[in-house]
């Protein structure tokens, strides 16, 4: 019924014995204490707010068992900034008011982190990429604008500089 697993979250190694049915999102929040990853629905995979980056890909952490992430490397919202310096995507959200209450924001940022690795600078592509995260303050227009700014800022960087913002 239980298994010992090790998951690296934002370069910190966490080992725990968990039930097979334990969800990855609970491992992140309850065991690793990284509560920036939110839960906005009843774990049905509908809201997208629990999105984290697992081995380089954005996934909904409520749609993965913790045991399935044994040995994986995760990036969560807490690992996005570099110290005091905001990730270009975070900076763009702040500059262009890409959030109101902010509850869904971790899900948007981690989903769009994946999209920004190989972005397409069109409103359609951005909206398609973020269709798996719900914002109930209805701030999508500003989010699209923020993503476009982030694309431009990242495109102006050298490849090495840009790679620094995509550790996973």
């Amino acid at each position: 019924m239980k298994r010992e697993i090790t998951i690296t979250i934002n370069d910190e190694v966490h080992t725990a014995t968990v039930e097979h049915r334990y969800l990855l999102v609970d491992f992140i929040r309850e065991i690793a204490g990284a509560t920036g990853t939110h839960v906005g629905c009843g774990f049905e995979g509908r809201c997208g707010t629990c999105t984290v980056v697992v081995d380089g890909y954005a996934v909904k952490s409520c749609l993965m068992l913790a045991v399935q992430a044994d040995g994986a490397k995760l990036l969560t919202i807490e690992g996005l900034a570099r110290g005091e310096e905001l990730h270009p995507l975070q900076a763009a959200f702040r500059d262009l008011h890409g959030l109101q209450c902010g509850f869904c924001t971790p899900g948007f940022l981690m989903t769009l982190y994946d999209f920004l690795k190989d972005p397409i600078d069109s409103e359609d592509a951005i909206r398609h990429a973020m269709s798996g995260v719900l914002c109930r303050c209805t701030g999508y227009v500003h989010i699209v604008a923020a993503v476009r700014q982030a694309i431009a800022v990242l495109a102006a960087m050298t490849p090495t500089e840009r790679a620094r913002w995509f550790p996973l």
Binding site: Y57, V59, D114
Partner: peptide, 9 residues
């Protein structure tokens, strides 16, 4: 199918 996160997995 699905959304970006679902297509990833």
């Amino acid at each position: 199918i699905g959304d970006l996160q679902v297509r990833n997995r």
